[in-house]
């Protein structure tokens, strides 16, 4: 029972991270119907920029005096960096292909993914890059169960980001414009919504969330690697599909489920095959209920 609760907590932590990545996929897919294969690389880039800034602050010595400021600044800068990266990528590699066949954009996205991960490798080296390890040692002890401070931070931050995103999408005018663009680009253009700006904004928000997830993974596992974006990217996409692609609440739920399944699968079935569970869920969902848990009726051409 104790280990069950421990696994549950680990699952929520991991699920929150997947949910953050999945949001980027689902938002972009909702707006321009493209699987943004480069999204996993935004996540990896976020992890790298986070470690760059954290170690820069550590080198300056601010880390001991103002740890909270340094952490906040690192998160904010990494998220901004990835948003900046995503906007550029969108303008260069996706925007000219919006009217072409879907395959062209998909392959362009694959190209961007390969390009970015190799760019990270060339600038940052082939080996793992370690996060400053003295952060967040220890945790709350409840008998046998331990909740690390870091897990608390990850869950809280994830929750805060998800709430903020929900507010942005469902309560503000920008969010309304985003939803309008996702529904019908021509009509929204007629009511003076600049769909190009909205699409860029969607990419930026998605990439920012992925960057936050990247730093969290870096803090949680202690290091980042240039090719770390691939597997979490695919799993997060599975999460987005599970929740119903294009649906923001669904992506959050899907991320949590995928994270739980992975942790429980690794704990109770087999640790070696933990990466397989997400794919099996993906295939199962697409086979039995292609619209996902929360998905609306989607037309025939999408599936």
């Amino acid at each position: 029972m104790d280990s069950f609760i421990q696994q549950l907590i680990n699952g929520i932590t991991l699920g929150g991270i997947y949910a953050l990545i999945a949001l980027g996929y689902t938002m972009v897919y909702g707006v321009i119907q493209l699987i943004n294969f480069a999204h996993g690389e935004f996540f990896a880039a976020g992890g790298y920029v986070g470690v760059i800034f954290l170690s820069f602050f550590t080198g300056l010595g601010y880390m001991e005096t103002h740890p909270i400021f340094c952490l906040t600044a690192s998160f904010a800068l990494a998220m901004m960096y990835c948003a900046y990266l995503a906007i550029g990528v969108e303008k260069i590699a996706y925007k000219p292909l919006r009217k072409e066949a879907r395959l062209a954009a998909l392959l362009s996205a694959l190209g961007v993914s390969i390009f970015l991960s190799n760019g990270l490798m060339l600038t940052q080296g082939v080996y793992d890059k370690a996060y400053p390890s003295e952060l967040f040692q220890g945790g709350f002890n409840f008998g046998i169960i331990t909740i690390g401070y870091l897990q608390v931070l990850i869950v809280c931050l994830t929750g805060a980001l998800l709430v903020a995103l929900n507010l942005l999408v469902f309560k503000t005018k920008i969010g309304m414009a985003m939803r309008a663009t996702a529904q019908d680009k021509t009509m929204s253009a007629l009511v003076a919504i600049g769909s190009n700006n909205i699409i860029s904004l969607t990419f930026a928000i998605g990439a920012g969330l992925a960057a936050a997830a990247g730093i969290m993974v870096g803090l949680y596992y202690g290091s980042v690697r240039y090719d770390m974006g691939f597997l979490p990217g695919i799993k997060a996409f599975s999460a987005a599909v599970l929740g119903g692609i294009g649906n923001i609440t669904g992506a959050m739920l899907g991320g949590l489920i995928i994270g739980m399944v992975e942790i429980f699968g690794a704990g109770y079935i087999s640790g070696e095959y933990k990466d397989v569970f997400a794919f099996i869920i993906l295939i199962g969902v697409l086979y039995f209920k292609p619209t996902g848990i929360m998905g609306e009726n989607i037309d025939d051409t999408r599936v």
Partner: peptide, 25 residues
């Protein structure tokens, strides 16, 4: 067999998943 119902992007991602499953096995 299970992927025949899907088209386009979804098929791409499912075949990617199958490829990864084979590699992991």
């Amino acid at each position: 067999y299970p992927t025949l119902r899907m088209r386009g992007d979804y098929l791409a991602i499912v075949t990617l998943g199958f490829g990864e499953i084979v590699r992991i096995i």
